[in-house]
Design a protein around this nucleic acid. Structure first.
Ligand code: FES
Ligand code: FES
Lengths: 155, 155
DNA sequence: TTATTAAAAGACCTTTTTATCTTTTAATAG
DNA sequence: CTATTAAAAGATAAAAAGGTCTTTTAATAA
């Protein structure tokens, strides 16, 4: 449904929304470590997001990535569109050529409401609104393994 | 969410449920053509489904694939488990290491109800019940392009 | 018992996705 | 200016997914 590349891109962009500004730009390395994503891969994704005007960058000392005022108005679906295109996320769950209600696959009427729901979520809020909401609600933004270890090392 | 392999396997097995029997076994070639799937690839999948006791086969003249009485009691989730394993379909939509409500990703509470819904659908009916339901409801079981052409060729 | 049929098995190939590495460009601090 | 910093660009590589082909095995009809 979403490529790993899109997932990385969404999490990283939301991370930028929460932690960067024009005065506080963030390097690929820092973001890659924070959300636990391979940094050369993320660097490639960021190049593409910059070209797609989803995020911004400057080179040199204190350079890095950040969101301009225009960038802040984009939404999560713009990120997905930029990385995967829209076909992938709109495609039929069972792989039929067309996902539509006139020729539905066996699970179409379960999938469609969900798809509308999540596409709405990704479209109807700006990156900044989305980022605020998830920080208010305490949603996770890292791929790091956070599961507690079975026993604390002790004496 | 589902690999193409799983999708092929599900559609093909449902096709067997609808069209085959111990007296009327069906060859890979026939199924592959009916649902428009590459036949050598489907042959590999079927080998695996036979080993997993999801479908049955016999070699030789009038041989082919069919569902035994035991096979008919399996469900769609058994197919998915056999091809993809269960991890893939249970994984987090955003790629987090764990999908659970205590450490939810930004879309967890949209995804979870859908996932329960569709997993229920795949688990609570036998292959035969599922196959009957979709034929009653007229759901599509082919990957063929069925979209009407823009204009009929004429004089 | 032989020829034929169709699956099983396993080697192999191609494409896509994911990931890495090296060189170049641009910004800026000193 | 010059050294340094960090992204851009682009080549390359590794892994996974998807797909094909050839040989072997088993069933059966003639
Ligand atoms: S037709 Fe399959 S999900 Fe819509
Ligand atoms: S934690 Fe992401 S879907 Fe459940």
């Amino acid at each position: 449904m979403l490529s790993r590349a899109s997932k990385y891109a969404i999490l990283s962009t939301l991370f930028l929304a929460q932690h960067s500004s024009e005065e506080r730009k963030i390097s690929v390395k820092e973001i890659a470590e924070s959300i636990d994503v391979p940094s050369p891969f993320l660097a490639k994704l960021f190049q593409q997001l910059v070209r797609g005007k989803i995020i911004s960058s400057t080179k040199g000392p204190h350079g890095g990535f950040y969101l301009s005022e225009k960038n802040k108005m984009k939404n999560v679906l713009d990120i997905i569109e930029n990385i995967d295109g829209l076909n992938k996320i709109n495609s039929c769950f069972m792989g039929l050529n067309e996902c539509d209600s006139t020729n539905p696959c066996p699970v179409h009427f379960i999938v469609e409401p969900f798809k509308n729901n999540i596409l709405g979520k990704f479209r109807d809020k700006t990156i900044m609104e989305f980022a605020k909401e998830i920080s208010d609600k305490g949603r996770l933004l890292t791929l790091k393994d956070i599961s507690p270890s079975f026993e604390e090392p002790h004496e």
